[in-house]
Design a protein around this nucleic acid. Sequence first.
DNA 1: TGTAAATATATTGTTAACAATTTAATTGCA
DNA 2: TGCAATTAAATTGTTAACAATATATTTACA
Lengths: 145, 145
Amino acid sequence: MAKKDDMLRLDSQLCFSIYACSREIIGLYRPLLDDLGITYPQYLVLLVLWEQKECTVKELGNRLYLDSGTLTPMLKRMENNGLVKRFRSQQDERVVLISLTKKGESLKERAYCIPEEFLAKSGFTLAEMKEMLVRLQSLRKQMNA
Amino acid sequence: MAKKDDMLRLDSQLCFSIYACSREIIGLYRPLLDDLGITYPQYLVLLVLWEQKECTVKELGNRLYLDSGTLTPMLKRMENNGLVKRFRSQQDERVVLISLTKKGESLKERAYCIPEEFLAKSGFTLAEMKEMLVRLQSLRKQMNA
DNA sequence: TGTAAATATATTGTTAACAATTTAATTGCA
DNA sequence: TGCAATTAAATTGTTAACAATATATTTACA
């Protein structure tokens, strides 16, 4: 049963390596994000809004793979911290639109250093980084098929 | 500023790809783990215990990169579900030892299919899987340096 | 030996992830 | 037109991650 047992060894599990890596990266980002007064998932929301200024909760969920059960309370916290505004669409009252405040907008300038810092600490070249990105995206596509 | 802005695009962020992948894999595992009556982090605890039968909370934390703030309540839940036993070491009363119950032990047999299922769904060959594993481990090592 | 430092776990409080359900608005179609 | 099905968010409840702190035990060494 040694071979069978090998499959169940913690250190041979890709899933664990990805899970641990994710948490480690978030830990690396934490002091930087603390300076901006945001958390990692909030940073992801801002990334989307820095790209497109305004979007619906639904669209945010599609980009980040999160549902309203996660997003609604998080967006309320961000609203309380003055980062975003929330309001119902006039055309369709079911839809909630999220847009940046001046404060949320202004954080972008201070965020450029974050991916740079990560690239530096990762020890990867930009090419290796992209290679990895492609593999992970194909993994995700596969799993959805 | 287009190039600078590119760095902040959600889809060019390796960190997001890893974070999203991690959650997606856990989602893939969920129905299988539901059958066993455990969650993903609990599965990781069992992986360690299937390897070595008994260990301390400290050792579990070292393997899984989790602290007592996460482990203590989780291990209590696992104890309530009859999966593990918890008891203080006789030699050092600070230390809490975790060991498997018959029930926890017996789940191993039903868990072999989980990494197999993942390998199948990932669309990766075993070699590609290992390649990826190595890269992620080196990324983790780098970040800790 | 006695006490300060170190160590292991537990506790408290905040944020997040997600299933399941609810509420409200819109759409489709008999 | 009117009502059933669909859709978008919000709500509720459970588990987890983690910072900060507390408690209890052990170790080190003055």
